[in-house]
Amino acid sequence: MGTIQVLDDHTINQIAAGEVIERPASVVKELVENSLDAGAKNIRIRVEEGGTSLIIVQDDGCGMDREDASLAFKKHSTSKIRSFDDLSAVNTSGFRGEALPSIASVSRLRITTAEKGSKVGTRITIEGNEGLKVEDHAAPQGTTIEVADLFFNTPARSKHLKRVSTELKHIVKAVTIEAIRRPDVGFNLVHGERKLIDAPSSDLKTRIGVLLGRDAAKELIEIEGEGNGLKVHGYLTRPAVSRKTMLSIYLHINGRPVQARNICYSIRGAYGSLLHEGHFPIGALFLEIPAQDVDVNVHPAKTIVRIAQEERVNQELRRILKDILAEQALISHVNLDDTRTDSIFGTP
Protein backbone atom coordinates (compact mmCIF):
# COMPACT_ATOMS: atom_id res chain seq x y z
CA MET A 1 0.00 0.00 0.00
CA GLY A 2 1.32 3.45 -0.92
CA THR A 3 2.05 6.17 1.62
CA ILE A 4 -0.10 8.82 -0.08
CA GLN A 5 -3.76 8.74 0.86
CA VAL A 6 -6.81 10.89 0.19
CA LEU A 7 -7.90 12.72 3.34
CA ASP A 8 -11.41 12.13 4.65
CA ASP A 9 -13.96 14.96 4.43
CA HIS A 10 -13.86 15.76 8.15
CA THR A 11 -10.09 16.22 8.14
CA ILE A 12 -10.31 18.38 5.03
CA ASN A 13 -12.97 20.55 6.66
CA GLN A 14 -10.94 20.97 9.85
CA ILE A 15 -7.92 22.05 7.83
CA ALA A 16 -10.08 24.55 5.95
CA ALA A 17 -11.49 25.75 9.27
CA GLY A 18 -7.97 26.73 10.29
CA GLU A 19 -7.99 29.32 7.49
CA VAL A 20 -11.65 30.35 7.42
CA ILE A 21 -12.55 30.18 11.14
CA GLU A 22 -9.87 31.91 13.19
CA ARG A 23 -12.08 32.98 16.10
CA PRO A 24 -15.79 33.49 16.97
CA ALA A 25 -15.88 36.73 14.95
CA SER A 26 -15.01 34.68 11.83
CA VAL A 27 -18.11 32.56 12.40
CA VAL A 28 -20.29 35.66 12.79
CA LYS A 29 -18.84 37.21 9.64
CA GLU A 30 -19.40 34.12 7.50
CA LEU A 31 -22.96 33.55 8.75
CA VAL A 32 -23.95 37.20 8.35
CA GLU A 33 -22.57 37.18 4.81
CA ASN A 34 -24.71 34.12 4.04
CA SER A 35 -27.75 35.97 5.41
CA LEU A 36 -27.04 38.98 3.20
CA ASP A 37 -26.62 36.75 0.15
CA ALA A 38 -29.99 35.17 1.00
CA GLY A 39 -31.66 38.59 0.68
CA ALA A 40 -32.26 39.17 4.39
CA LYS A 41 -33.68 42.53 5.44
CA ASN A 42 -33.20 41.94 9.16
CA ILE A 43 -30.36 40.05 10.85
CA ARG A 44 -30.27 39.28 14.55
CA ILE A 45 -27.06 38.02 16.20
CA ARG A 46 -26.86 36.68 19.72
CA VAL A 47 -23.62 35.55 21.38
CA GLU A 48 -22.67 34.13 24.77
CA GLU A 49 -19.22 34.16 26.39
CA GLY A 50 -17.71 36.14 23.55
CA GLY A 51 -19.10 33.68 21.03
CA THR A 52 -17.18 30.70 22.41
CA SER A 53 -20.17 28.98 24.01
CA LEU A 54 -22.94 30.11 21.64
CA ILE A 55 -23.50 32.10 18.45
CA ILE A 56 -26.97 32.47 16.95
CA VAL A 57 -27.56 34.25 13.64
CA GLN A 58 -31.20 34.62 12.57
CA ASP A 59 -32.40 36.16 9.31
CA ASP A 60 -35.57 36.67 7.27
CA GLY A 61 -33.96 35.78 3.95
CA CYS A 62 -35.18 33.35 1.31
CA GLY A 63 -34.47 30.22 3.35
CA MET A 64 -33.68 26.79 1.91
CA ASP A 65 -35.53 23.59 1.12
CA ARG A 66 -34.49 20.27 2.61
CA GLU A 67 -32.20 19.30 -0.29
CA ASP A 68 -30.28 22.60 -0.41
CA ALA A 69 -29.94 22.73 3.37
CA SER A 70 -28.32 19.30 3.40
CA LEU A 71 -26.11 20.06 0.41
CA ALA A 72 -24.84 23.27 2.06
CA PHE A 73 -22.73 21.15 4.43
CA LYS A 74 -20.77 19.55 1.61
CA LYS A 75 -17.44 21.27 0.95
CA HIS A 76 -17.40 23.66 -2.01
CA SER A 77 -21.17 23.52 -2.40
CA THR A 78 -22.38 27.02 -3.28
CA SER A 79 -25.23 28.81 -5.01
CA LYS A 80 -23.00 31.80 -5.84
CA ILE A 81 -20.91 30.59 -8.81
CA ARG A 82 -20.97 27.78 -11.34
CA SER A 83 -17.47 28.01 -12.84
CA PHE A 84 -14.11 29.72 -12.29
CA ASP A 85 -15.01 32.32 -14.92
CA ASP A 86 -17.85 33.53 -12.68
CA LEU A 87 -15.28 34.85 -10.19
CA SER A 88 -14.53 37.78 -12.48
CA ALA A 89 -18.02 39.15 -11.90
CA VAL A 90 -19.06 37.66 -8.55
CA ASN A 91 -21.17 40.14 -6.58
CA THR A 92 -22.07 38.02 -3.58
CA SER A 93 -20.28 38.01 -0.22
CA GLY A 94 -19.34 34.34 -0.37
CA PHE A 95 -18.50 32.05 -3.23
CA ARG A 96 -16.03 29.42 -1.99
CA GLY A 97 -18.53 27.04 -0.35
CA GLU A 98 -16.27 26.53 2.68
CA ALA A 99 -17.96 28.35 5.56
CA LEU A 100 -20.69 25.98 6.77
CA PRO A 101 -18.71 22.70 6.53
CA SER A 102 -15.72 24.41 8.17
CA ILE A 103 -17.81 25.78 11.06
CA ALA A 104 -19.64 22.47 11.49
CA SER A 105 -16.35 20.57 11.74
CA VAL A 106 -15.25 22.49 14.87
CA SER A 107 -18.55 23.04 16.70
CA ARG A 108 -21.97 21.70 17.55
CA LEU A 109 -24.18 23.26 14.89
CA ARG A 110 -27.90 23.39 14.25
CA ILE A 111 -29.62 25.06 11.33
CA THR A 112 -33.35 25.68 11.03
CA THR A 113 -34.60 27.01 7.71
CA ALA A 114 -37.77 27.41 5.65
CA GLU A 115 -38.66 28.91 2.30
CA LYS A 116 -41.50 31.36 1.78
CA GLY A 117 -44.85 29.62 1.66
CA SER A 118 -43.49 26.21 2.68
CA LYS A 119 -45.72 24.14 4.93
CA VAL A 120 -42.80 22.83 6.94
CA GLY A 121 -39.18 23.78 7.39
CA THR A 122 -36.00 21.77 7.87
CA ARG A 123 -33.77 21.36 10.90
CA ILE A 124 -30.29 19.86 10.61
CA THR A 125 -28.02 19.05 13.54
CA ILE A 126 -24.35 18.14 13.25
CA GLU A 127 -21.61 17.73 15.86
CA GLY A 128 -18.01 17.73 14.66
CA ASN A 129 -17.41 14.65 12.52
CA GLU A 130 -20.81 13.07 13.11
CA GLY A 131 -23.29 12.75 10.26
CA LEU A 132 -26.21 15.07 9.59
CA LYS A 133 -29.43 14.60 11.54
CA VAL A 134 -32.15 15.95 9.25
CA GLU A 135 -35.77 16.41 10.33
CA ASP A 136 -38.88 18.40 9.53
CA HIS A 137 -39.44 21.41 11.78
CA ALA A 138 -41.95 24.24 11.84
CA ALA A 139 -40.20 27.53 11.13
CA PRO A 140 -40.88 31.00 9.70
CA GLN A 141 -39.31 32.05 6.39
CA GLY A 142 -35.58 32.51 6.74
CA THR A 143 -32.70 30.74 8.42
CA THR A 144 -31.46 30.42 12.00
CA ILE A 145 -28.01 28.96 12.65
CA GLU A 146 -26.87 28.06 16.17
CA VAL A 147 -23.18 27.38 16.75
CA ALA A 148 -22.36 25.98 20.19
CA ASP A 149 -19.06 25.06 21.86
CA LEU A 150 -16.78 26.44 19.17
CA PHE A 151 -13.49 24.49 18.91
CA PHE A 152 -14.73 21.86 21.40
CA ASN A 153 -12.91 19.17 19.42
CA THR A 154 -9.77 21.19 18.67
CA PRO A 155 -8.42 22.10 22.13
CA ALA A 156 -5.24 23.67 20.75
CA ARG A 157 -7.36 26.24 18.89
CA SER A 158 -9.60 26.83 21.89
CA LYS A 159 -6.62 27.42 24.17
CA HIS A 160 -5.39 30.29 22.04
CA LEU A 161 -8.62 32.28 22.14
CA LYS A 162 -8.36 35.59 23.96
CA ARG A 163 -10.42 36.95 26.85
CA VAL A 164 -14.20 37.21 26.40
CA SER A 165 -13.94 41.01 26.12
CA THR A 166 -11.36 40.72 23.34
CA GLU A 167 -13.33 38.16 21.34
CA LEU A 168 -16.45 40.28 21.79
CA LYS A 169 -14.62 43.33 20.46
CA HIS A 170 -13.78 41.41 17.29
CA ILE A 171 -17.41 40.35 16.90
CA VAL A 172 -18.63 43.95 17.24
CA LYS A 173 -16.11 44.98 14.59
CA ALA A 174 -17.25 42.22 12.22
CA VAL A 175 -20.91 43.18 12.56
CA THR A 176 -20.08 46.89 12.20
CA ILE A 177 -18.28 46.18 8.92
CA GLU A 178 -21.29 44.34 7.50
CA ALA A 179 -23.79 46.89 8.84
CA ILE A 180 -21.95 49.80 7.22
CA ARG A 181 -21.71 47.87 4.00
CA ARG A 182 -25.50 47.32 3.94
CA PRO A 183 -27.34 50.20 5.64
CA ASP A 184 -30.57 49.00 4.00
CA VAL A 185 -30.54 45.93 6.27
CA GLY A 186 -31.43 46.05 9.96
CA PHE A 187 -28.78 44.66 12.34
CA ASN A 188 -29.15 43.68 15.98
CA LEU A 189 -26.31 42.28 18.13
CA VAL A 190 -26.82 41.08 21.70
CA HIS A 191 -24.27 39.62 24.13
CA GLY A 192 -26.05 37.89 26.97
CA GLU A 193 -28.64 40.47 28.02
CA ARG A 194 -26.62 43.42 26.75
CA LYS A 195 -27.59 45.04 23.45
CA LEU A 196 -24.42 46.11 21.62
CA ILE A 197 -25.74 47.13 18.21
CA ASP A 198 -29.25 48.20 17.31
CA ALA A 199 -29.21 49.60 13.78
CA PRO A 200 -32.54 49.72 11.91
CA SER A 201 -32.41 49.98 8.13
CA SER A 202 -31.43 53.50 7.06
CA ASP A 203 -29.24 55.47 4.67
CA LEU A 204 -25.45 55.31 4.81
CA LYS A 205 -24.96 58.64 6.58
CA THR A 206 -27.37 57.70 9.36
CA ARG A 207 -25.80 54.25 9.71
CA ILE A 208 -22.32 55.76 10.09
CA GLY A 209 -23.64 58.03 12.83
CA VAL A 210 -25.27 55.12 14.68
CA LEU A 211 -22.17 52.93 14.55
CA LEU A 212 -19.24 55.34 14.56
CA GLY A 213 -20.58 58.05 16.84
CA ARG A 214 -22.31 61.42 16.80
CA ASP A 215 -19.08 63.39 16.64
CA ALA A 216 -18.21 61.69 13.37
CA ALA A 217 -21.74 62.11 12.00
CA LYS A 218 -21.66 65.89 12.53
CA GLU A 219 -18.45 66.26 10.53
CA LEU A 220 -19.16 64.02 7.55
CA ILE A 221 -18.38 65.18 4.02
CA GLU A 222 -20.19 63.47 1.16
CA ILE A 223 -17.76 61.91 -1.29
CA GLU A 224 -18.90 61.46 -4.88
CA GLY A 225 -16.72 61.36 -7.96
CA GLU A 226 -15.42 59.36 -10.89
CA GLY A 227 -12.71 59.30 -13.49
CA ASN A 228 -10.17 57.08 -15.21
CA GLY A 229 -12.13 53.88 -14.58
CA LEU A 230 -12.87 54.61 -10.92
CA LYS A 231 -16.16 55.57 -9.28
CA VAL A 232 -16.28 56.44 -5.60
CA HIS A 233 -19.01 57.41 -3.16
CA GLY A 234 -19.42 57.53 0.60
CA TYR A 235 -18.62 59.82 3.54
CA LEU A 236 -15.44 60.90 5.30
CA THR A 237 -15.03 63.24 8.26
CA ARG A 238 -13.55 66.71 8.15
CA PRO A 239 -10.08 67.01 9.72
CA ALA A 240 -11.61 68.05 13.05
CA VAL A 241 -12.53 64.40 13.70
CA SER A 242 -9.81 61.84 13.07
CA ARG A 243 -8.17 58.84 14.69
CA LYS A 244 -4.63 57.57 14.93
CA THR A 245 -5.59 54.40 13.09
CA MET A 246 -6.86 53.49 9.65
CA LEU A 247 -9.29 50.96 11.15
CA SER A 248 -12.09 53.54 11.21
CA ILE A 249 -12.02 53.85 7.42
CA TYR A 250 -14.44 51.23 6.13
CA LEU A 251 -13.38 50.46 2.57
CA HIS A 252 -15.38 48.57 -0.03
CA ILE A 253 -14.39 47.56 -3.54
CA ASN A 254 -17.25 46.58 -5.81
CA GLY A 255 -19.46 46.20 -2.74
CA ARG A 256 -17.05 43.95 -0.85
CA PRO A 257 -15.49 45.06 2.49
CA VAL A 258 -11.72 44.95 2.08
CA GLN A 259 -8.47 45.70 3.86
CA ALA A 260 -6.29 47.96 1.71
CA ARG A 261 -3.51 49.85 3.46
CA ASN A 262 -2.34 51.59 0.28
CA ILE A 263 -5.79 53.02 -0.36
CA CYS A 264 -6.03 54.22 3.25
CA TYR A 265 -2.71 56.02 2.87
CA SER A 266 -3.93 57.56 -0.39
CA ILE A 267 -6.95 58.90 1.51
CA ARG A 268 -4.68 60.30 4.19
CA GLY A 269 -2.43 61.77 1.51
CA ALA A 270 -5.34 63.70 0.01
CA TYR A 271 -5.88 65.45 3.35
CA GLY A 272 -2.19 66.28 3.60
CA SER A 273 -1.26 68.62 6.44
CA LEU A 274 -4.90 69.04 7.47
CA LEU A 275 -4.53 65.94 9.62
CA HIS A 276 -2.20 65.43 12.54
CA GLU A 277 0.78 63.21 11.79
CA GLY A 278 -0.32 59.58 11.66
CA HIS A 279 -4.03 60.38 11.81
CA PHE A 280 -6.76 59.24 9.42
CA PRO A 281 -10.32 60.43 8.80
CA ILE A 282 -13.33 58.33 9.81
CA GLY A 283 -15.99 57.08 7.45
CA ALA A 284 -16.92 54.67 4.67
CA LEU A 285 -15.93 54.68 1.02
CA PHE A 286 -17.27 52.51 -1.77
CA LEU A 287 -15.00 52.15 -4.78
CA GLU A 288 -16.21 50.73 -8.08
CA ILE A 289 -13.51 49.33 -10.35
CA PRO A 290 -14.01 47.24 -13.51
CA ALA A 291 -14.55 43.67 -12.29
CA GLN A 292 -11.85 42.27 -14.55
CA ASP A 293 -9.30 44.47 -12.75
CA VAL A 294 -10.06 43.00 -9.31
CA ASP A 295 -9.08 39.53 -8.05
CA VAL A 296 -11.25 38.57 -5.05
CA ASN A 297 -9.96 34.99 -4.82
CA VAL A 298 -6.81 35.81 -2.83
CA HIS A 299 -7.58 34.53 0.69
CA PRO A 300 -10.39 32.43 2.23
CA ALA A 301 -11.42 35.39 4.41
CA LYS A 302 -12.18 37.34 1.19
CA THR A 303 -11.08 40.65 2.75
CA ILE A 304 -7.94 40.99 0.65
CA VAL A 305 -8.12 41.73 -3.07
CA ARG A 306 -5.59 42.37 -5.80
CA ILE A 307 -6.12 45.38 -8.04
CA ALA A 308 -4.61 45.71 -11.49
CA GLN A 309 -2.91 49.12 -11.91
CA GLU A 310 -3.41 49.88 -8.22
CA GLU A 311 -1.28 53.02 -8.34
CA ARG A 312 -3.53 54.48 -11.06
CA VAL A 313 -6.54 53.84 -8.82
CA ASN A 314 -4.77 55.50 -5.87
CA GLN A 315 -3.82 58.55 -7.92
CA GLU A 316 -7.37 58.99 -9.18
CA LEU A 317 -8.79 58.60 -5.68
CA ARG A 318 -6.42 61.25 -4.32
CA ARG A 319 -7.46 63.61 -7.12
CA ILE A 320 -11.17 63.11 -6.43
CA LEU A 321 -10.74 63.63 -2.68
CA LYS A 322 -8.54 66.72 -3.11
CA ASP A 323 -11.14 68.29 -5.41
CA ILE A 324 -13.90 67.65 -2.86
CA LEU A 325 -11.82 68.98 0.03
CA ALA A 326 -11.06 72.09 -2.06
CA GLU A 327 -14.77 72.61 -2.70
CA GLN A 328 -15.28 72.43 1.06
CA ALA A 329 -12.65 75.21 1.37
CA LEU A 330 -10.51 72.90 3.46
CA ILE A 331 -7.53 73.02 1.11
CA SER A 332 -6.50 75.43 -1.61
CA HIS A 333 -7.23 74.21 -5.10
CA VAL A 334 -4.00 74.22 -7.08
CA ASN A 335 -3.75 72.83 -10.59
CA LEU A 336 -0.21 71.52 -10.69
CA ASP A 337 -0.37 71.23 -14.47
CA ASP A 338 -0.60 75.03 -14.74
CA THR A 339 2.23 75.80 -12.32
CA ARG A 340 5.96 75.78 -12.62
CA THR A 341 8.88 76.25 -10.31
CA ASP A 342 11.48 78.80 -11.40
CA SER A 343 15.12 78.10 -10.74
CA ILE A 344 16.82 80.19 -8.04
CA PHE A 345 19.07 81.34 -10.85
CA GLY A 346 16.15 82.67 -12.85
CA THR A 347 13.81 81.23 -15.44
CA PRO A 348 15.62 78.75 -17.67
Rank of each mutant, 00 (worst) to 15 (best):
K80H: 14
T52Q: 13
D65N: 15
S26G: 06
L71H: 03
I21P: 04
I15K: 04
I15G: 01
G61K: 04
N42S: 13
K41A: 03
D65G: 04
G51C: 09
G61Q: 08
K29G: 04
G51N: 11
G51Y: 06
K80I: 13
N42K: 15
V27D: 09
I21A: 02
V47R: 15
V57Q: 10
V57F: 07
P24Y: 03
I15R: 04
P24F: 05
G39F: 03
L31Y: 10
L36H: 04
D68H: 11
T78L: 00
K41D: 09
L36Y: 02
I15H: 02
N42I: 08
A25V: 08
Q58Y: 03
N34C: 10
D60N: 14
G18C: 02
A38V: 02
E49Y: 08
N34L: 12
R66L: 05
V28C: 09
I56M: 14
A17M: 06
E48P: 06
L36G: 05
L36K: 07
R44Y: 09
R66I: 11
K41Y: 04
I21N: 01
R23H: 12
N34P: 01
S26N: 06
E19A: 10
K41G: 13
F73K: 03
I43C: 11
K74N: 15
Q14V: 10
I56W: 07
E22R: 12
L36Q: 02
L71F: 01
S26P: 02
I56A: 13
I55L: 07
G39N: 08
E19K: 10
R44W: 05
E33T: 02
K75R: 13
K29A: 11
D59W: 06
S77R: 07
K80P: 05
I56D: 14
S70T: 12
T78M: 03
I21Y: 01
S35V: 12
V32F: 06
V47M: 11
V20Y: 00
I45G: 12
G39R: 04
G39M: 10
K29E: 15
I81W: 03
A25Y: 10
V32A: 10
V32H: 09
Q14C: 02
L71W: 00
V47L: 14
R66V: 04
P24N: 09
N34H: 09
K41M: 07
E33R: 15
I45L: 08
P24C: 08
A16M: 12
I43E: 10
P24Q: 09
Q14W: 01
L36S: 08
V27F: 07
I45C: 10
I45S: 15
I81N: 02
A69Y: 00
M64N: 00
A69K: 01
A40G: 05
I21S: 03
V32W: 05
A17T: 05
I45Q: 15
R44Q: 13
E30N: 03
I12V: 15
V47A: 11
